[in-house]
Simulated scan of single mutants.
Amino acid sequence: MPRRALDNPIVLAVLGLLLEQSSHPYQILSELRKRSDNHAAAITRGTLYNTVSALAEAGWLAEQGQQRTGNRPERTVYALTEAGRDELVRRLDAHIRTPEREFSQFLGAVSYLGALGPDGAVEALTERAGRLRRRTVADEERLAGALAAGVPRLHVIEAEYALSLARAEMTWIDEVIDDIRNGKLSWPEAAATQPGTDRERADREGGRA
């Protein structure tokens, strides 16, 4: 198994889940997708199974037997080994201590915000902020429900952190929109004349027709 499988970002999540309870890969996959939108979008069944195999090969997981549900095939249940627990603690400690510059699609896109033009930038940012607000409201309700049901705060601390990031992003977007509108964030003349949205491009093309 290639070493890079042990560098996959989901390794930490898999080790963490198995710290809670022994599970088979399908159960791990379902739980990861349920707990995180990012995991739901990024993790494939093949990636998860390859990661579990790599962790077992490294001695961080151990087979604990087989489990059958109904008429489904038997599934191998894995448990965290002492070496796996040590590796989990080591990685957790390193990630929490060391802030990293994480590159997101939004960060890459906002680097070229100027290409949208002032009006296009305001339109796109406004739509993003609206979607973020709707998602944040739903996430807040889900978190409040979990806490009201008696789930310890420590068990949903990642949801709390994600909400803090979303709120900070919405605040920043609102500030940028205001700065564009009041002229504090200005566009170079050449960039400001570029089409900012598909609708604007269509209008311009229609005017030249």
Rank of each mutant, 00 (worst) to 15 (best):
L15F: 11
E57K: 09
D119S: 12
Y78P: 04
I96K: 05
R75Y: 07
R4Y: 14
E57L: 07
G120M: 08
R91W: 09
G114D: 12
R68Y: 01
R91A: 01
R35V: 03
T126W: 05
A13P: 03
V52C: 08
Q105R: 09
Q27A: 15
D37E: 14
L19C: 01
V52N: 04
P118H: 14
Y112M: 06
A94P: 00
L55M: 14
L116A: 15
A79M: 02
I96W: 10
D37L: 15
L92G: 13
P9D: 06
A40W: 03
R97D: 11
V137E: 11
A124P: 00
L32D: 06
E87D: 10
R4H: 11
S22L: 01
A40I: 02
T76A: 14
V14L: 12
R85G: 04
A13M: 01
L12P: 00
A56V: 05
Y26A: 11
Q64T: 02
R97T: 12
A124M: 14
D93L: 07
A129C: 05
L125G: 00
L92S: 13
R90E: 08
E74P: 02
A41F: 05
V11P: 01
I10F: 14
R3H: 13
D139R: 14
A138L: 09
P99F: 13
S23N: 04
L107W: 06
R101L: 12
T69G: 01
